[in-house]
Design a protein around this nucleic acid. Structure first.
Lengths: 199, 199, 199, 199
DNA sequence: GATGAATGAGCGTTCATTCAT
DNA sequence: GATGAATGAACGCTCATTCAT
């Protein structure tokens, strides 16, 4: 769990390689070259390639959940909660662009059944947490109750994912944060219960 | 352009391998095993692995555009056009599930610059065509005009992509077509200009 | 022995491929492409690659010996005989430049023991015939008798081979025939018995 | 430039394979078998096959030039210089017979344009250096001035090359050094200016 | 005479990993 | 902590050759 500095460095480089050059180029050779050490040196810090990919996924999971964990989930306004989550997401991608190219590429880990399972569980846990917010929003009369929560989830996060992917494919050529928040406000306006925003 | 029967068979198997086992397992050896021929036999039909991947992308492009091409783009009701496109997409995925796992995995082709470029161009052409429909919908007073068309594009296709991805990751465990159309109707109701629906 | 037109054509192309692109590129695929037929078609005319190389060597042997065979070996002036032979050689190379790059590359056939043996026997027979002329020249008082005939052989044909090799490597950029005859005259003057040329 | 012991060993074996079994059998598999390692092991020491062939050529170049470099080119008697060069050449071949089969087989490297170019440049530099000696010999009245220096070059080195080739093809069955020096003396006597040898 | 399709053997190369130092 | 050297397995690909048509 608690990673050494060296391990974190390796994971960071691995994510960058994954993003910039694809899975096929995420080899120990390239990793070692980027880290300016020999290949066997990496085995000091990880038991093998699988362990590195596992740590990469852990870092994704951490990113995905850190905000949600810190929110006072039970009391905070659900729409504000979702907004904070989205903003946090965008800011993290903005600060570490390679993530944008990689984080939603669940297929990349398809090779190993255990890693694929982990990907699913991360996605699932993320979905559960945000759907809780959505459900509470509907219960509290803040989100249109007639929309299926599952659809709502995809309505909120589908465009976000697509936006981030486009940002990555575009070579980070537009302002992710501004565009992302504009898009969120548009969606929020559409799914918010009329009359919710009296203030 | 005009592929032989054997070539089409190879492409089909390649897509399936890509979907089921990932790019790393899309090897000539596995391809040959699936086709029940030796590896060199494949070189009679394609000049190499690159050519196979290229043909796979061509088949994606064809799928993505066939409906849009057949629509009488200028006269048809834009929302109906989008709906037809979405339905066609869902039906094709339903008929060929491996596609669902692969078609939006643009990263898979990142390894080769030419293929990556092709992926971008397919995405772009798809975006241009649907945005044309969106713009006309706004001009004709059928779609909310205050929403940025680019955001509208992501609002429509982001959830669709996410749905298809979930379907693939779930092992095709829900009714893609029903769920997809339900989702589309929800989105349509949100983006449609009030008063457009005379009923 | 008696080759069909098609067989001769194949041998000619084989020699050209050998000269222009080296042994490694003398493949049935390249051969077939040059001949504008499919690969199996070649098996109509030769039993395999070995047979083709064998025929190539036969064509070399034929070239090397044709003049010597036609000379009235016993009566003709030996130095004139050698000169005719050299001139014939130069003219043949001039007329079919690829030969220049290939004909003295005995190593090329090293791969197959039988072909290597054939190369040696061609060289040997050529050596025997010309040494006969040399010996008679010495016996008739026309060539310096104090020089070892074997050395004389290398003195005459070593420079010729080197000249032809340089011509090939230079891309045929000088006048082979003129340069070759000039060189021969120089050598002839050196090995001729003083007093032999009173006329 | 500075090769490791392992690299030199590989080059030596490569030359031997080249000589004994030809370019077609100079495969990594055979190389590895001779070295008693696995094939990938070789990649620790050379980046690939091209690099090995390149090193082989470098070793040829070194052999060809080492003597000429050490000679006090400007002051030494030209004929003695040529003789030293020839003797050195013969001794090196004698000490490392595979060289005899390979060193003049310029065609072997024809497959790769860069290597072919290197072969030419080695030949050229060798020619330039020896022709300098020849020209000085003519200027100093020690070599017949009426003979074209280019012809003289071929007159000296053509027989030498042919001798070495015959030695290799014969399976090293005669005394290369003795035969070579005898041949050189014969040639020297022919090209030396009468009166140069007062003894 | 010729072809399309196929094949076993072999090619140069890269992979993740191990081990002695 | 780190390295140089090595390895078995696998990669994409080309070879000469065969065979049914």
């Amino acid at each position: 769990m608690a990673m050494t500095v060296r391990q974190q460095k390796i994971v960071t480089v691995a994510v960058r390689l994954l993003a910039e050059r694809g899975i096929q180029q995420l080899t120990l050779k390239n990793l070692a070259a980027e880290l300016k050490v020999s290949e066997p040196a990496i085995y000091r810090h990880f038991t093998g390639k699988y362990a590195i990919l596992d740590a990469v996924l852990d870092s994704f999971a951490e990113i995905a959940q850190s905000v949600l964990d810190e929110l006072p989930a039970d009391t905070m306004d659900p729409l504000t909660g979702i907004e904070l989550f989205i903003r946090d997401r965008l800011e993290r991608m903005n600060a570490n662009p390679p993530l944008a190219k990689v984080m939603f590429s669940e297929e990349l880990f398809q090779d190993d059944p255990q890693l694929a399972e982990k990907v699913l569980s991360i996605m699932h846990s993320h979905k559960v947490r945000t759907e809780t917010l959505i459900l509470r929003g509907q219960a509290e009369g803040k989100i249109r109750p007639e929309i299926d929560p599952t659809v709502l989830f995809r309505l909120i996060f589908g465009p976000l994912r697509l936006l981030i992917k486009q940002w990555g494919l575009s070579g980070y050529r537009f302002e992710l944060l501004a565009e992302g928040m504009k898009q969120w406000r548009t969606i929020r306006d559409l799914i918010e219960l009329p009359g919710n925003r009296p203030e």
